[in-house]
Design a protein around this nucleic acid. Structure first.
Lengths: 258, 258
DNA sequence: TGGGATTTGTTCGTATGTATT
DNA sequence: GAATACATACGAACAAATCCC
């Protein structure tokens, strides 16, 4: 028998696939705040049972990306304005700490990686709103990871994701949330190992992001089924049951607001 | 039929009871880092099925209080020394922010509540190590909640709990983790609305706590069954199955204290 | 090293609760 | 407002992995 047994199955936990898929869909604004997340629908799309879907949803709930009410199921979270401000305050606090740490510890290799990241942002800027948002958040997460503090990095990652909700709810459409030039100046301050300046620039930058994020009115919401198709890495299994086959290839079934 | 149907059941989510029970047991050092947490045993003690236990365990895992490995189940987390330092760094960062906020916003009523909390600490100091630890952590959580930032408060709560693990692992036995006098001086700085001073005192205080926490060697571990009895609020149901009946009718099974 | 006992991972059925007509 | 349709809460049971002797 082979030494490497059949690793085809659970290279990663099955619920982790669902978790990451939903998380990405939310970050990408493919799922919008308030969108309902029925366990059955999600399970079908990902070819998993409700148990695993629940697991993923609970994880997202713990991160503040999903709201769950006792007998009413899950929905993408709709942070209040107050909560939004709290999130930005926490981000500023933690990311200032990241700056202070990195100004001391950063290596040339890390600086190069940051520059590469900003290059990606620049390339996507204006062209592809989706990629633009993704990369901008990734820059902040990358900084936090480079600081070496896993605890702080987890919190920053969580908060950056929640900022995507805030932008979706209150931001102007297509407002790229991070300016490339601001990221560049942060890198420069780090290169000079000027921690105070880097922290100051980061605080200012986040202030700008918050300002851009808290401006507009709620927004439309598309339907959920198609969206998830793009985020399910595995094809849904054939769905041997008769019921699934009866599903209509319906047109635009938009679900209700609020 | 009665208008108020049988509400005896889910006044609060059933898994929440398990979650809080385990969390308290860990904070109290009743469960020590590395202790195994078998789903069946916990379920029996709390009179719940494994589904609910798993839910609680996953929540604790998300908070960093429990480690879960794929087919090996859950155990109380054993943070590494590095992780311990990261936790304290994150705490210092967030709690400084709390100080800055509170120095501006604190009310006389809140100051009184803080003093009452410190009184409890003083009363318990030296007398009851368990209560002492509980109250000391509660002071920090209370401060964070008073800041009004729910996001920061959640993180602080989480980090304070994880500090209990660190003290259990690396601290000297019976080391009360917080000095009452240090808490008092923090209150004084807040009363004078001196944010810089409050932040400085808090940073110093946490440095002291970290110093006290990172000194000694691992520790003994008691058995799990009895411990959980004290944290299960509901009596375990009769366990109608035959298997459970074969369990030895051990001697003093007292539950429900407190 | 093998086999049995134990524990975890997952599915799915039933009961219960909520929304809708 | 009652009945229906639907979604969730929970638990029992099965499958697979691990542990232990």
């Amino acid at each position: 028998m082979s030494l490497l047994k059949d690793r085809g199955r659970s290279a990663v936990s099955r619920s982790g696939v669902i978790y990451r898929g939903l998380r990405q869909a939310i970050s990408d604004h493919a799922l919008l705040p308030g969108d309902k997340l029925p366990e059955d629908t999600i399970g079908e799309r990902f070819g998993a049972s409700r148990t695993l879907v629940r697991e993923a949803l609970m994880r997202l709930k713990a991160e503040g990306l999903v709201d769950m009410q006792p007998n009413r199921g899950a929905a993408v979270a709709r942070p209040s304005l107050d909560e939004a401000r709290h999130i930005f305050a926490a981000r500023a606090c933690l990311e200032r700490e990241v700056m202070a740490t990195l100004a001391v510890s950063i290596t040339p290799r890390q600086l190069a990686a940051l520059e590469a990241q900003v290059e990606k942002e620049r390339d996507a800027d204006g062209k592809d709103g989706l990629e633009s948002i993704r990369f901008a958040g990734a820059f902040h997460v990358l900084l936090a990871e480079m600081s070496g503090n896993r605890v702080v990095a987890r919190y920053v990652d969580e908060l950056v994701s929640r900022c995507a909700l805030i932008i979706a709810l209150y931001g102007q459409p297509h407002a790229s949330d991070c300016a490339v030039s601001e990221h560049r100046s942060i890198i420069e301050a780090l290169r000079e190992r000027n921690g105070a300046q880097a922290a100051k620039l980061m605080a200012h930058h986040l202030g700008e992001v918050e300002g851009r994020a808290l401006l507009a009115q709620p927004s439309r919401r598309p339907d959920i089924g198609d969206i998830l198709g793009r985020y399910a890495l595995r094809r849904p299994r054939p769905a041997t049951g008769a019921k699934a086959a009866s599903e209509s290839p319906e047109a635009g079934r938009e679900n209700r607001r609020r």
